[in-house]
Simulated assay, not measured.
Amino acid sequence: MKNTKVLIVDDSAVVRQVLSAGLAEHTGIEVIGAAADPLFAMDKMQRNWPDVIVLDVEMPRMDGISFLKKLMAERPTPVVICSTLTEKGAATTMEALAAGAVAIVTKPQAGLRQFLIEATEELVGAIRAAAQARLKRLGPAAPAVQPKLNADAILPAASSGAMTRTTERIIAIGTSTGGTQALEHVLTALPRVCPGIVIVQHMPERFTAAFAERLNGLCQIEVREARNGDRVMPGRALIAPGGRHMLLKRSGAQYVVEVVDGPPVSRHKPSVDVLFRSTARAAGANATGIIMTGMGDDGARGLREMHEAGAITYGQDEATCVVYGMPKEARKLGAVDREVALEQIPACILRNERG
């Protein structure tokens, strides 16, 4: 297999030096250059076009978001954002994701050199995922330090069958790579009156709040980062906070979310498997499960549990996925009732009956 060609665009000489050296040690990744700003980068790219670009946001001459938008309009190329994690920076990174970035790796303002050395494995995983992305105009994963856990680490599987159907429906959505744009497409298409929605989007801690805030400003429905005890209700979408698991619970005649700590499940926290299993237990046939674009298999087993509990289940089709990983794994397990294009998912959410 050919190497993944990577270009690093960052105004920090330290970042360029440390990332270039760190990535060069990994088989299958070839750093073809580094540039201090997008204008230098464009000159290099004309001579040797990269497969993946690692991009900072705040740079001289042209900021990263402007460069990203230009790139996606002219020649879409997978981009991994490597940005400083600040309150302002988080919102900026959300804008970058909306413009087409495939993944984000956060970097601190202090202790940068040591962080970059330690975070190389995370960045390699993001680059390999990005290299598989299929973008439109506008290799093996790194070994885990700990064993890959399933949802048993957070809550046991349901021991009884699906509960009796009620009038209140729950929509559970899981997504990862490419999901920020896909969720924006889906949620902005929903009317103010729609079933309550719970969402896991793989995203680092503190970024989910900015992501939810941005969507809330675009959508008719209310979108916010979930807090422990929040009620799931019509016209509201709750997004699991980065670094925490989110579970659906039944409280009398209502549904609420529980936000808990715990080990990563399917190597993710929040985990789609955890959300889907809890939805199978709490809502049974009152739920609809939707698994969307993403790398890996998180959510596949949980969606099967929802299916077995009587829920209607959908998987995003290959043609409209940025990465057809999670939906593919769910389909292979027999967890998906029907595969649909991204454009059809809002209608699936609003559909009242199986079909």
Rank of each mutant, 00 (worst) to 15 (best):
V145S: 13
T106Y: 00
L97F: 10
L116P: 03
L55Y: 03
I117N: 12
M62S: 07
F67K: 04
M59L: 06
A90C: 12
A96W: 01
E95L: 15
A99F: 03
V54N: 02
A90R: 06
V80A: 03
L68Y: 01
E121Y: 03
M62L: 15
A129Y: 05
L97D: 02
R128I: 09
A119I: 10
A103Y: 03
G64I: 04
V124N: 01
P50R: 10
D63K: 05
D56F: 05
P108V: 14
E95M: 14
P143F: 07
G89R: 06
L71C: 09
V57Q: 01
A99C: 09
E58W: 06
A133V: 07
A99N: 06
S66D: 15
D63P: 04
N48Y: 12
A98M: 11
A141H: 05
E121N: 11
A130S: 13
A101P: 02
W49E: 10
A90P: 01
D63S: 06
A126Y: 00
P143N: 10
A103S: 13
T92H: 07
T120V: 15
P140H: 10
K107E: 00
A130F: 07
I104R: 00
A142M: 15
E118D: 15
A142V: 13
D51Y: 07
G125H: 06
L85N: 07
A103Q: 13
I117G: 04
A129R: 07
